[in-house]
């Protein structure tokens, strides 16, 4: 192993770590993003990061055929973004409708159903009906 190999392989490992962090942060924006357009932008960015990963693998393995794969992935990502832009134009609502916040739904534990029902129970036969429907 020569000095050039050591320099190159250490740089490649560092770049893998950095790209992995960037990838996870972008995935977080896809999950969190409050509107549809935010998620589309983050998906476009994910394509770019994956192209970077493919380039790193091309250097590491020596198969330069990976360049063609990266170019075709870039083409697919471009076409997907154009299609998403048309979709936003035809079907979007300007981010006005309340979208489900997936991140909050994943992170917060579900509220205890029994205690809430007990608190809400006021009078009448309503809780019994609800319990029957739940079963």
């Amino acid at each position: 192993m020569t000095a050039a190999d050591v320099i190159l392989s250490s740089a490649i490992w560092l770049a893998f770590v950095i790209l992995g962090i960037a990838f996870l942060m972008t995935v977080w924006r896809v999950i969190k993003g409050p509107t549809l357009a935010d998620r589309v932008v983050a998906l476009d960015m994910l394509t770019g990061i994956v192209i970077g990963f493919i380039a790193l693998i091309a250097i590491r393995t020596g198969f330069t055929l990976y360049i063609d794969i990266a170019i075709s992935l870039g083409l697919v990502g471009f076409l997907a973004t154009v299609a998403f832009a048309r979709f936003i134009l035809s079907d979007g609502d300007g981010g006005k409708a309340p979208k489900p916040d997936i991140a909050r739904a994943l992170l917060t534990p579900p509220p205890g159903p029994r205690r809430k029902q007990a608190g809400r129970r006021s009078a009448g036969s309503r809780p019994a009906v609800r319990r029957k429907a739940g079963k």
């Binding site: 770049a15 950095i18 790209l19 960037a22 972008t26 924006r29 990061i49």
Partner: peptide, 15 residues
């Protein structure tokens, strides 16, 4: 390589 990875990280932070 390191400059490219750094730019990708900056983009993710900005996102």
């Amino acid at each position: 390589i390191l400059a490219g990875a750094g730019f990708a990280l900056v983009a993710a932070i900005g996102l």
